[in-house]
Design a protein around this nucleic acid. Structure first.
Lengths: 109, 109
DNA sequence: CTGTATCCATGTGGATACTG
DNA sequence: CAGTATCCACATGGATACAG
C-alpha cells in the first residue's frame, strides 16, 4: 500500500478510502493519533512490533495523503510530532463504524 | 489478503473489518452484490480486468468470512449464484460512508 | 531521537492452459 | 459455465546496520 499517486485510476471511491487507510499499520497509527499528538518514539512504543522503517514509511504515506501533519522541532536531539489534519479527523466516523462492525463480526462467529 | 483464520490475533477490531473487505477486488465484488444476486460470469464481466482465479479466490474468502453465499445449481452447464448474507448486508453502511469519504477526499485535493 | 540505506523473504496477484 | 492447476513477477513488509 503506497501513497495515492495522481496516475491512480481507481474505479470506485471506496477504493480510494481503502488505499488511504489500508496500509499494514495505518489504522493503528490513526488510533493513536485520535488520542492526540504523538512523537515518533511514542508511536514506535505504542505499536508493538513495528520497525522504524515501516513506521516512517506509513507516516510518510499518511502525510502525502493529507491525513497526518508532521511537525519538526529544529533542535538536538531531534523532536518530531505527528498529529491528524482536519481531513484526517474526518476519518474518525468511518474507523469507529469499522470498529463496531469488527466487534459484532467477532461475536457472530 | 486471505480469509480470516482462527489463529489471527488482530489487536484491533478495525483490522478485522479491514481484513474482510480489504482484498484487491472485494469492495468491487460487494458493490455488484449490493445490486442483487449475481452469477459467476456476470461478476466476471462486471469487474473488468479480473482473472477467473482472482474472482474465485476473492469469492471463496468472502464466503469463508460469512459475507457472501454461494448457491450451486446441480445442472449442466453449471450455474452458480452469489449473494450477500445478512452479515454481508450489514457492511453496506460502512461501504457507503467510505464511498462518501472517498468522493470528498478527491474534491479536497 | 528520528530517521536512511540495504538486503531479503514472503505474499499477493496475474497469465495461461486445462477440466468436469 | 464455472472453475483448477501451474508458474511467475512484483510489491510489500521486515531485519539489520548506519547516520545527522
Amino acid at each position: 500500500m503506497e501513497a495515492i499517486e495522481s496516475e491512480d485510476r481507481l474505479t470506485c471511491s471506496v477504493e480510494i478510502t481503502l488505499k488511504v487507510i489500508g496500509g499494514r499499520w495505518k489504522v493503528l497509527i490513526l488510533r493513536e493519533l485520535f488520542f492526540g499528538v504523538k512523537r515518533f518514539g511514542e508511536l514506535h512504543r505504542a505499536l508493538h512490533g513495528i520497525t522504524q522503517k515501516m513506521l516512517t514509511q506509513q507516516l510518510r504515506e499518511l502525510e502525502q495523503d493529507g491525513i497526518v501533519d508532521r511537525h519538526v522541532y529544529l533542535q538536538v536531539p531531534p523532536k518530531v510530532e505527528y498529529s491528524l489534519t482536519p481531513l484526517g479527523e474526518t476519518l474518525k466516523p468511518i474507523l469507529d463504524s469499522m470498529h463496531e462492525w469488527g466487534l459484532k463480526y467477532l461475536q457472530s462467529r
